[in-house]
Computed example of a mutant assay.
Amino acid sequence: MSKRIENFDIMSDPDNPQTVKFEDIQAALVRIRPYVPVTPVIPSHQSKTFTMNIIYKMESVLPSGSHKERGVANALLQIPRDFKKAGLVIASLGNHAYSMAYHAARMNIPITALFPDFIPIQKLQKIHALGTKVLVRGTNIADTHKIARAMAKEKGLFFINGRDHPHILAGLGTIGLEILEQVPTVDAVLVPVGTGGLIGSVGTVIKRIKPNCLVYGVQSELMPVFAKALELGEPITIPDVNTIADCLQVTRAGVNAFHNAKSVIDKMLLVKEDWVARAILALVEQERFVVEGAGACPLAAIIGHLVPELKTKTVVCLVTGGNIDSSFLARCLDRGLAAEGRLIKFRMRIVCEGRNLEHSLELKRALDRAYAGLTLFDTEPFNDKSMCPCYVVKI
């Protein structure tokens, strides 16, 4: 029996996981259509490179920059009327909260969003700007969820588990309906996986309408939480490790997510961090897309040659989001360039012998003029800390 802790989430009960039916997803699509537009599918410029017909499903173009809008809109439209005035409390790694803030503002529903302490400030500011109350609580998303549930009970707010609530999952599944409508010849769909809610719902649709279409999940090898759960046959908790695919940085698979996903996944793929960085770089350079680590994971699996069986096939890569911190993006691009051997950083140490002090000072001044602020001298009297005022640079 599951432990009935004080802030137990009845909508995510290990003893009674809830099945998201195909009909639930169909109804969700009708419900959210006034709020969430159809997202485009775009052929890749790299199809010839990888000998497969790669097509991107661009969830990153939604107003909040994430696929999370689908689940959020479906859930908000079904919350009890009494709570629409009191408001909601949620826990998030960023995208769920931003999507929730965006649509809750449109529906005039107050939101309190809790985040673990490693979330970039830029994300918090964007969410706060939409009128959401932002609080940093906990060191990982599991702890933040517990705190959010306790707050909901204490203050009479409505709690929605953005990664496991059945209404959220049904909304996410609408991506599958759109893919099959837009790319009827699809042979495989590659889906980023965190707790498993997205792939469970999308897979439910794919396997219902086109059973022969392959459904592959992709996770960072540093956080293989869902892959491990499938191996053991039940959700488990793993240590929290930082990953470029930060939106997939979860320590445990969802109860409902695992229940719905375990029978619709054909294969789980674990990608290296360097592959994710290279995928982000490729999407910027080749496609002109700015994509977060999670959204780049499907392409990372292709770059890492994990799917040779998909050669000549039509493959849809689900680009789940584009909310990447600008400074983090710069580091990812540098890492991608380095992984491809296109960026080299090094330091040179040169030892020179001068004829005399004046000759050595002449060399120092020439270097200072040519490389202002970039040269460091180790020996006295040329290093800045010990240089006598009489040796100042003479331009």
Score class of each variant (00 low, 15 high):
M52W: 04
K210C: 07
T174P: 08
L281K: 09
V225G: 11
P239T: 13
V255A: 06
A150E: 15
S99P: 00
Y56P: 04
L76R: 01
K364W: 03
P239C: 13
D117S: 09
Q125V: 14
Q125H: 14
I302A: 09
K123D: 02
R369K: 15
G65I: 08
R33G: 07
L376G: 01
I168M: 04
S386M: 14
Y216T: 06
R106A: 11
R31D: 03
T251M: 13
E353R: 12
K21Y: 11
L329N: 03
A245P: 05
K68D: 02
A227L: 07
S2H: 14
P211Y: 05
R288T: 11
R349A: 09
A227Q: 12
K207V: 02
C332N: 12
A294M: 05
G203L: 05
A142V: 10
A282P: 00
F118W: 08
N260I: 00
R163M: 13
E178Q: 05
M1N: 13
F83S: 02
S326W: 04
K210Y: 03
G341V: 06
H103S: 02
E292H: 06
G293D: 00
G156N: 05
E292K: 05
E231I: 12
E285N: 14
A28E: 03
T204P: 01
H165L: 05
Y56V: 05
N53D: 15
L333G: 00
Q286G: 10
A296L: 08
V134Y: 04
E234A: 14
S60Y: 11
L270S: 08
G94H: 04
R369F: 14
L281I: 00
P166R: 05
P110C: 04
H259L: 03
L376N: 04
R355V: 14
A104Q: 03
L93N: 08
Q125A: 15
G176K: 01
F83V: 01
L283V: 05
R369V: 13
D143W: 11
C297T: 15
G336C: 05
A28M: 03
A229K: 06
S360W: 09
R149P: 12
A279H: 02
A142D: 12
D274P: 00
D13T: 12
E358Q: 15
L310I: 11
T144R: 10
D13I: 07
Q26M: 15
A86W: 01
A28T: 04
G87N: 01
L76H: 03
P17Q: 07
F159C: 06
G254Q: 06
